[in-house]
């Protein structure tokens, strides 16, 4: 029989790996493309396109290239998570009032200080809501990772379907659903917590 606890932890681990890498790559991309509208369109068009590829097809393609196991699944999750994270980083930073940027520059902030002290803190709630969307999507997609030999809660679901074993299906499906609901709630709490007090009204208007 499957140990659901271990599978749940595995499932969460795979999701976090994919989304975590997407944050590491996506936020810098979202920031860098704010410099050029044309490049921004191009990059977001590309990440958009990646989202339209059916998950199963993407997994199959990645499997051909990287073989079986957790690696192609994490890469697939990374690719799916990029769009909401890149887009929200871009939108969050572009949405900052130009007067703040001018004031910051006029007071002698370097580009890095501007990013760290002004742009990131103000855009953070918007970026976080992108991360939340990405995480919930990734938990769903991770469940089909079983088809390319990855771990996670997909295994009891898939096996249960083959054996017409409802209890086995539920033993995977219910924890996966709970995981999605719980991470959505947790991340939305986190989103509120990192929104500074003075900014709360304004942030909720922008998202």
């Amino acid at each position: 029989m499957y140990n659901i606890w271990i599978l749940t932890v595995q499932h969460l681990g795979l999701t976090l790996a994919g989304v975590g890498l997407a944050i590491l790559i996506g936020v810098p991309i979202g920031y860098l493309i704010t410099g050029n509208r044309w490049v921004a369109q191009l990059v977001m068009g590309f990440t958009d396109m990646m989202q339209t590829i059916p998950a199963l097809a993407l997994l199959a393609l990645l499997m051909l290239w990287m073989g079986l196991g957790d690696t192609p699944l994490v890469v697939a999750l990374l690719m799916y998570s990029l769009l909401p994270i890149v887009r929200n980083s871009y939108v969050g930073i572009m949405g900052i009032d130009g007067a703040l940027i001018e004031a910051a520059k006029g007071m002698g902030m370097t580009r890095w200080q501007l990013l760290r002290m002004v742009q990131l803190p103000i855009a953070l709630p918007v970026i976080m809501s992108g991360v939340r969307v990405a995480t919930v999507t990734a938990i769903g997609i991770a469940a089909i990772g079983v088809l390319i030999g990855a771990g996670g809660l997909g295994a009891p679901i898939w096996r249960g379907m083959q054996q017409m074993n409802t209890a086995m299906i539920l033993s995977g499906a219910v924890p996966a659903a709970l995981l999605a609901v719980a991470s959505d709630a947790g991340l939305s709490k986190l989103e509120q917590a990192i929104t500074p007090r003075g900014f709360r009204n304004i942030a909720s208007q922008n998202t």
Partner: peptide, 29 residues
């Protein structure tokens, strides 16, 4: 950057940082 830190600058749109307290805003430079 060094030049701007030696010159005070006030703009019409005020441009206070919404995520910083009054004290933090005053002491940015």
């Amino acid at each position: 950057v060094a030049l701007r830190r030696q010159i005070g600058y006030v703009i019409q749109q005020i441009g206070l940082f919404p995520h910083m307290t009054v004290e933090e805003n005053i002491t940015v430079v």
